[in-house]
Amino acid sequence: MVEQPLVSVIMPVYNSEQFVGKAIQSVQKQTYSNWELVITDDCSKDKTVPYIKQYINKDKRIKLFELKNNSGAAVARNTCLDRATGRFIAFLDSDDLWHAEKLDKQVKFMLAHDFAFTFTGYDFIGHTNKVISVPEKINFQGMLKNTIIGTLTVMIDKRQTGTFYMPLVKRGQDLLTWALLLKKIPYAYGLNESLSSYRVVKGSLSNNKIKAIKRTWHNYYYELQLGFFKTLYYFVFYVFNALKKHYS
């Protein structure tokens, strides 16, 4: 029997006691068993840490690291990435969920085609009919035009991409990371099947559309240094496709 490559699951947490247990359980329920769950707590003020430790006591595949100062999601994710030992890197935030066959299907998809970067479709918790479908593949320019790559669906083969980290920007570091990776590799490939469930949390950063629009302009213009006209070009497509995704 061929040994399963190790998948490192990256999970930043902050004041997550309400949902983190369900997120951890969705990893434990995976039909693919060779994973490690690397969690970094960003100085939670609630019972997140003792709650996670209850899971660690029963499952040694779960690892917890604690930041000394509240530093933001990018630092928390990068702390996880520093300590991840797997060939494959996957991302799951503490309020989202995976379907049981997510890792199994995505690893097989990547190995069968030797893909370095993949993403999948996903659905929304509490919205039974809303499903995000994904294209067969997308390049750097295509990614800038929309928000189709959901962080909770991403898997990276670090053997092909090499070590990578998320930029230390205040917000939108995940989408900026995918853009920077797609400057190095030609395409990210989509597995058009809903394998994850995204939770819309009222008042969350990702749920604030105005802030999302502002941070996207900032990241395109200042971080990726596209220049004014290219930023404007991609930004118009981004806004249109974001509205289409959320309201269609």
Rank of each mutant, 00 (worst) to 15 (best):
P5W: 06
V7L: 14
V9W: 02
V9C: 06
V13P: 15
Y14D: 08
Y14I: 12
Q18H: 07
G21R: 07
K22A: 14
V27Q: 05
K29I: 09
S33P: 15
W35K: 06
V38K: 09
T40H: 04
T40L: 03
D41V: 02
S44A: 10
K47W: 10
T48D: 06
K53E: 06
K58N: 08
R61P: 03
I62V: 05
F65Y: 13
N69S: 11
N70Q: 06
S71V: 05
G72R: 12
A73Q: 08
V75E: 12
V75Q: 12
V75H: 12
A84R: 03
I89T: 15
A90P: 11
S94T: 03
A100H: 12
A100R: 15
K102V: 04
D104S: 14
Q106M: 11
K108G: 05
L111I: 11
L111P: 07
A112T: 13
H113L: 09
A116M: 07
A116F: 04
T118F: 08
F119G: 03
T120A: 14
G121I: 06
D123R: 10
F124N: 03
K130Q: 07
V131L: 15
S133M: 10
K137C: 01
K137I: 00
I138M: 07
F140E: 02
L144K: 12
I148W: 00
I149P: 04
I149F: 03
G150S: 15
L152W: 11
K158N: 13
R159L: 10
Q160C: 05
Q160L: 12
T161L: 01
Y165C: 00
M166D: 05
P167E: 04
V169F: 08
R171W: 00
G172P: 03
Q173T: 13
W178E: 06
W178I: 03
W178Y: 08
P186N: 00
Y189F: 08
E193W: 04
L195M: 10
Y198V: 02
R199C: 09
V200I: 07
V201N: 13
K202T: 09
S204L: 03
L205H: 12
S206E: 14
S206L: 07
S206N: 14
N207F: 11
K209L: 11
I210S: 15
K211Q: 15
K214H: 12
W217R: 11
H218D: 12
N219P: 12
N219V: 09
Y220A: 14
Y221A: 02
G227R: 15
V239L: 14
K245A: 14
K245I: 15
H246L: 15
H246I: 10
